[in-house]
């Protein structure tokens, strides 16, 4: 096959394949992560203690699970603001069922069903009614929190005697590693596989890259969109179960601001808010960066208020970088 210089636009990255480019981006993020680790070790030798590392890992897992769902949604050029509220509703519902003596497998299934229902609700709004995802899920966010408060009457719900039996999911260990980390690893593996190696994953990228072209290419766009909101809802309620298990209480306020955490993680992980670009590996690194950053600021004894300022600045930097890169590409 002949390739002439003329066929490659000057200054473009035509010579580098997509895979190589995303790999290079991943490496950039990995560098940030390594530097953060170095800083953490330098600042405080206690960073490397097993207890601290596992803490950071658990943190990564908890925010990471929701962020994986958010990654799917953002890849289709959408957004899901309702994840935190879904966590709230699921938390109080699960806690009340457990306290009432419902068996654990049924509680788990029912809790996951709540997430799926919320996902379908969001999906119907976006797909059938054609509402902008931002507005649709904003409505769900507000309503969901209200539902959680109403169900729980504004009070935290104790698990009662069921707490011990349910402890394993969020507080247990397997081979010396907290169970939530195992769950996170499994979810990341599945999500990576789905996005990379299945027809559905390909269609998620297609819808996000160019929705109209996807429709004209015969892709069932409504089904793809519906699926990503269901995935996001499902992973939100899974997160809620871990919360409830670990804290032994279902709080109606659980998951407040979780949507902001998840969006930050996804964006820092290099998934484009313009859709069709990015993936779950970046999201894992994004979650690790956010957790490490918080850990370092804690180790430094910086007040939570100041931490918020730093975190906001990081998000702006990440998004700003992304927007600039996008503009250059056009």
């Amino acid at each position: 096959m002949e390739i002439t210089a003329r066929d490659v636009a000057p200054g473009s990255v035509a010579g580098i394949s997509r895979r190589m480019r995303s790999w290079a981006q991943g490496i950039g993020l990995l560098w940030v992560l390594l530097i953060l680790c170095g800083v953490a070790i330098y600042l405080s030798p206690s960073f490397l203690q097993t207890g601290n590392l596992l803490n950071v890992g658990r943190q990564v897992a908890l925010f990471g699970i929701v962020s994986v769902g958010m990654t799917f949604v953002i890849l289709t050029r959408g957004i899901d603001l309702s994840v935190g509220s879904i966590v709230g509703v699921t938390s109080v519902s699960a806690a009340m069922m457990l306290a009432a003596g419902v068996s654990i497998p049924i509680v788990v299934l029912a809790a996951l069903a709540i997430g799926v229902l919320f996902g379908i609700f969001n999906g119907v709004g976006v797909v059938v009614l054609g509402m902008p995802p931002f507005i649709m899920t904003l409505g769900t966010l507000v309503m969901g929190r209200g539902i959680a408060m109403t169900i729980a009457d504004g009070q935290p719900k104790s698990l009662g005697s069921a707490a011990d039996g349910f402890h394993f999911l969020g507080g247990g260990f397997l081979l010396g590693i907290p169970v939530p980390i195992w769950i996170f690893v499994a979810i990341v593996a599945v999500a990576y596989f789905v996005l990379r190696h299945t027809a559905f994953g390909r269609q998620v990228y297609a819808v996000g890259s160019n929705g109209e072209a996807a429709r004209l290419a015969g892709i069932n766009v409504p089904r793809v969109l519906m699926s990503v909101y269901v995935i996001s809802g499902l992973l939100s309620s899974l997160t809620a179960l871990i919360f409830v298990s670990r804290l032994t209480v279902g709080e109606p306020t659980a998951g407040t601001n979780l949507e902001l955490e998840a969006i930050s993680i996804v964006v820092i992980g290099g998934t484009s808010l313009f859709g069709g670009e990015g993936g779950v590996v970046g999201t894992v690194i994004g979650a690790a960066i956010i957790a490490l950053m918080a850990n370092i600021l804690n180790l430094l004894g910086i007040s939570p208020f100041t931490q918020q300022i730093v975190k906001g600045a990081i998000i702006l930097a990440a998004v700003g970088f992304e927007v600039m890169r996008h503009r250059k590409g056009r």
Binding site: A213, A214, I219
Partner: peptide
Amino acid sequence: TEGLFLDQSVGFNITVS
């Protein structure tokens, strides 16, 4: 605007349908 996925690969664009 309607035909191609400009930011995806040649292969992606050929097999997507």
